[in-house]
Design a protein around this nucleic acid. Structure first.
Lengths: 215, 215
DNA sequence: CCAGAAGTCAAACATTCGTTTGATTGAACC
DNA sequence: GGTTCAATCAAACGAATGTTTGACTTCTGG
């Protein structure tokens, strides 16, 4: 049996790769350090030598990809704002495109997407807070941009719609393989999926605001 | 310390209640049978006596609420179809309203909503298959109804949009407390949340379909 | 060439897990 | 009153977990 993560440059990144994959496949708590180190071709003690604990390894797995991902989102939003930012679709696209492109371009990106989607719902307060903290700036900048583009929405409606958008995004990134299997088609054209999703979300964003009371 | 689940009618439902809460709070694998039985005020061996194994307990927790929930959805859809079903919003509402009302009306419903949302993303193939199987009929009936109401969408676009809708639903039901805390308002008016969400989703559903190639 | 740091390794640590066992209770039934 | 059966209980089982240790390599700089 060859090691599951072939191009192991150094032990530390091999551990990160193996942990990312196993966390996504079997969950964090269900992935033992023995299984991770075995998959990484490393010794059991290597995790504690390089990271200090399993919890520190978990946080390292998230931090490695989450920071660049949200930097891409903010950069895309800044670019959109510099261009005047008339098009609502461009704002939505700045939010949803980076993670979906990561699935296509980054090895292990699909595993990571599932991992992040689950992290929001997952219970371990520590990692959930870590993930949420990484998103704090993104939430603020994007809700502000959406508020400017959609002046007809009050604050509550705006936050809820951002939440709806984030939900669609997380599920799409984390469960894209499920729809693919159902459709039976080949590998998804990510760029078209981005168009589909951003079109859907832009339609939801521009919907008339919900009435205060039932009609 | 009083038992965490006060109105324990019989041991079996006490175990289900305690398991549901702890599963949602700390995750399935992180919730030990010792913690569950302690919270239920029962003996450690009670789980194996009443259910046979921990895995069987997990499945019982899901089956208890999922079946009636999806029955409500299908009944609401049938009612809508009997009325001619012109309004797209009514179809969407039949999908999203039952779980959100469950959060309000059923004790422990919010915990269960988080649990189900996570179940989709979670790795344990057994429970994920169980949950997906419960949704099979719902997926089929609702995509068919949406297809009739939106004849302009091809099959792929339709399935993706259903997926987007399910994602918003799952996140909203599973993480509503997060938005509530951010907004700082009191307990959510569930009926208004249903109007917000169904309005948003109806807007997304009626958006023009994504072009095959970039413009 | 060699001192020393950095990394790897097998082995063991205590703890916790799901599961099983066998005795004990309590109420229903003839 | 005695029997029966479902339910509960304390105690223990083996297996698996995260973590630690101390010796063994491997590389690096002087």
């Amino acid at each position: 049996m060859s090691p599951a993560t072939p191009p192991a440059l150094d032990t530390k990144t091999s551990l990160l790769d193996a942990a990312e994959r196993l966390f996504a496949e079997h969950g964090v708590t269900a992935s033992s350090l023995r299984a991770i180190t075995r998959a990484a071709g490393a010794n059991l003690a290597a995790v504690h030598y390089h990271f200090g604990s399993k919890e520190a390894l978990v946080q390292a797995v998230f931090a490695r990809r989450l920071a660049p991902l949200n930097r891409q989102r903010l950069a895309a939003l800044s670019r959109c704002e510099a261009d005047g930012c008339r098009d609502l679709d461009a704002i939505v696209r700045a939010f949803v495109a980076p993670p979906l492109r990561m699935i296509r371009d980054t090895p292990g990106g699909r595993d990571f997407a599932r991992l992040v989607a689950r992290a929001f719902l997952e219970p371990a307060a520590e990692t959930r807070q870590l993930v949420l903290a990484q998103f704090e700036e993104v939430i603020g900048r994007f809700t502000a941009a959406l508020g400017r583009a959609l002046p007809g929405l009050d604050r509550d409606e705006l936050h809820w719609r951002f939440h709806f958008m984030a939900g669609s995004m997380a599920f799409t990134a984390g469960l894209s393989h499920l729809v693919e299997r159902r459709l039976g088609s080949g590998p998804t054209d990510v760029e078209q999926l981005i168009r589909r999703l951003s079109g859907f979300l832009a339609g939801g964003m521009t919907a008339p605001p919900a009435p205060e009371r039932a009609r």
